[in-house]
Amino acid sequence: MKISAVIPAYNSAKFIRAAISSIQAQTSKVDEIIVVDDGSMDDTEQIVKDISHAIIYHKQLNQGPSAARNKGIELASGDWIAFLDADDQWTPDKIAKQIQTLQAHPELHLIAGDMTEIDNDDLLITNSVLAKHQMLASFQHLAGKPVPNALAALVMKNFIPTGTVLVKRHTLIETGMFNAEIRFGEDLELWAKIAACHPITCLPDILMLRRQHGNNATQASEAMLINLTKVMDSICDFAAPQLINQGVSPDNLVAEAQWTLGYWYFNGGDNAKARQAFSKSLSQKFKLGTLLYFISSSLPAPLIDTLRVIKQKFAKP
C-alpha cells in the first residue's frame, strides 16, 4: 500500500508550512507529498522548496482547487490518495487510524473522518463537526464499518470533509475525479459517485483541523446554489437506480435544489429568475407549495411586498 498526499495550494504562504509539517509528523508515514500550486503569486513556491526537495512540486495557471487536485492525482504514484488543503492540518494519527480501518474492512474504497474547526490563530471554533450536525453517534456506532445506504446519506448531508479522505486512486480515476466545471459541491458529486458503486465509511475520530476564515466560510450565494443544482443533476444522471434502491427520489432531489435556488432569488427580489427556478422544480416534481411560490413570483412587486408583511404578521407568536 503506497499513499500519496495531495495539497492544492493558492497563495498559501501563511499556512502551507504547518500543513506539510502535519503530514510529515504522521505516525504512519505517507510515501510522497505532492503540492500543486494553482497559480500562486506569493511565496508559496519558495516555502515548499525550502521545506524539502523530496516534495513533488507542480505549478500551473490558476484553474481552481478541483483542477489542482486532479493534477495531483495524475502525478501521484501511490495506489491510495489522501487530500489536505494548504491551510488545514492533519492530526498525527490520521493515516494510522485509516490504515487500521482498512485492515479491518479491506472492502472499503474511501475512508473519511471527523474534523475540528479552528481560526487563523489556531483557536478552537468547533470541537467536532459531526457532533455539530448531530451525526457523531451514528458513526460511533458504525466504528469504521461501511456506511449503509451511503449514497442516500450523502445527498441528505455531505459528511465527508475532503481533507480527511483516504481513497483508492483507481476509484478516483474510474469515477472521473473532481468536476472542474463545478466550483461548489464538486466534492459531494465525486463522493456520491464513489458511494454509488463502492463501500465507504467515515470515522468518528478527529482526523483534521480545518481553518475557518473569510476565504472558505460557507454561505448561501447564487453561484453556490446554481452549482448545487448541477451537482444534483449529475448525481441523479449517474446513480438514479442506486438512489431509488436506497429510498431516495432522484426527481425530488433535483426539484428541491431548484426550489432552494428559486427561493433565494425570490427573497432577493429577482422574480424572473425565481420563476425560472420554480418552473424547473415543478417540471421535476409537482408540489403545491412550489406552485404557490411560482404564482407569487409572477405578481407585481408591491403586491409581493404586501403579502410578505401579512405573512410576517401572522407568523409572529
Score class of each variant (00 low, 15 high):
235 I>L: 04
219 Q>E: 13
191 W>R: 11
240 A>F: 04
223 A>T: 11
215 N>Y: 13
236 C>G: 03
225 L>T: 04
237 D>M: 11
215 N>I: 11
203 L>S: 01
236 C>S: 01
226 I>R: 04
200 I>V: 13
222 E>W: 06
186 E>F: 15
179 N>S: 11
214 G>M: 12
240 A>T: 03
182 I>A: 05
195 A>D: 00
215 N>R: 14
202 C>E: 01
178 F>E: 02
217 A>E: 13
231 V>H: 07
189 E>L: 12
190 L>Y: 04
200 I>F: 06
228 L>S: 03
196 A>I: 01
239 A>I: 03
241 P>K: 09
186 E>W: 07
224 M>N: 13
223 A>K: 14
189 E>Q: 13
177 M>E: 10
186 E>V: 08
225 L>N: 01
238 F>W: 09
212 Q>E: 13
218 T>Y: 14
231 V>L: 04
177 M>P: 05
198 H>P: 05
233 D>V: 10
218 T>I: 15
227 N>L: 06
228 L>A: 09
235 I>C: 01
235 I>E: 00
201 T>V: 07
234 S>N: 04
241 P>M: 07
197 C>H: 14
198 H>Q: 13
197 C>Y: 11
225 L>F: 04
218 T>S: 15
228 L>G: 05
200 I>K: 00
181 E>V: 10
233 D>S: 10
177 M>I: 11
237 D>C: 01
186 E>R: 00
192 A>I: 05
187 D>C: 07
190 L>P: 00
238 F>T: 03
229 T>I: 05
213 H>F: 14
180 A>G: 09
206 I>R: 07
241 P>D: 12
188 L>R: 00
203 L>D: 05
209 L>F: 15
201 T>M: 13
180 A>P: 03
223 A>L: 12
200 I>W: 06
234 S>C: 07
219 Q>W: 13
207 L>R: 00
224 M>K: 15
197 C>W: 10
208 M>P: 01
235 I>W: 02
240 A>K: 06
220 A>K: 14
179 N>W: 06
216 N>K: 06
193 K>Q: 11
204 P>S: 12
222 E>G: 06
205 D>E: 12
228 L>E: 03
217 A>I: 15
240 A>L: 04
205 D>P: 05
